[in-house]
């Protein structure tokens, strides 16, 4: 197939070099550096602090997640991307919680997965199982179609595949891809915006980006001043301030 000699690595290198060559990058700080890295899943943007070691996800699954969430919420001048915000860590920690084990869902059969979508989730998989099966199936599909796993593909190709997954256009055995994508996107946004104690939203970066004051939870003085910009940055449940 034509994908035997993909042109993407050279394109990736070109993108990286061209961005690094722009003088303004140094002024834009870590966000811009992360952006240059976001094109290559092999070198994901990493926030400061000790590196997290996943407990549930395997190394190939971890590569997939970093490469996927990096596209769902990319790093750029607007604010942190999902990878530097710690979303993969959040996902891994959620897999160890009751939620990941399906403990919050009714999981008794019979399962009727072809029910109308309006009747909600009807798969037999817990989140742990859905991620495990979904990632393996998508990586297999990428290997067959593109001779590489998802994580090794360039950003634009990953974007295209994620769009196909979202629309259910890729058919995989066992795993409805739209359901997998929906789970991934939902959990990614959860990790991006949840309190940092869950492993995502590092340094409350997502809250700072949008202007949410986090756990301040006291606006008695402000409701009487409608229309005034609220001046304080976020605090976290564990007492971090900004």
């Amino acid at each position: 197939m034509s994908s035997k000699q993909p042109s993407s690595p050279s394109r990736r290198d070109f993108l990286r070099q061209s961005l690094v060559a722009v003088p303004a990058v140094s002024l834009m700080g870590t966000a811009a550096i992360a952006q240059t890295q976001s094109g290559t899943a092999a070198t994901p943007a990493v926030a400061a602090g000790p590196k997290y070691t996943p407990r549930y996800f395997t190394a190939p699954e971890w590569d997939f997640l970093e490469a996927a969430v990096d596209r769902l919420i990319p790093s750029n001048e607007d604010g942190p991307g999902a990878v530097e915000a710690g979303v993969p860590e959040f996902l891994d920690r959620q897999m160890e919680a009751a939620y990941g084990h399906g403990g919050l869902w009714y999981m008794q059969g019979p399962f009727v997965p072809d029910s109308p979508p309006t009747l909600g989730y009807q798969l037999r998989y817990t989140p742990r199982e859905l991620y495990r099966k979904g990632i393996a199936a998508i990586d297999d599909w990428c290997q067959k179609q593109h001779n590489q796993k998802f994580a090794a593909l360039p950003a634009d190709q990953r974007d295209a595949i994620l769009h196909q997954l979202e629309k259910g256009e890729i058919k995989l055995d066992d795993v409805p891809t739209a359901a997998f994508f929906s789970q991934l996107l939902t959990n990614t946004k959860e990790g991006y915006f949840a309190d940092p104690m869950y492993g995502g939203n590092k340094q409350m970066g997502a809250w700072k980006m949008i202007g949410f004051p986090g756990a301040r939870a006291d606006f008695a003085d402000w409701v009487e001043q409608p229309g005034k910009v609220y001046p304080f940055g976020p605090v976290s449940i564990e007492g971090a301030k900004s």
């Binding site: 596209r71 919420i73 949008i210």
Partner: peptide
Amino acid sequence: PIQQLIVPPGTPSWGAGWKKAAKDNYL
């Protein structure tokens, strides 16, 4: 923000476009 953040019509559900819309519209 997980439940109540809203973005204008036409905003993609993810990616740089979603993120910019979230940032620009939240407040």
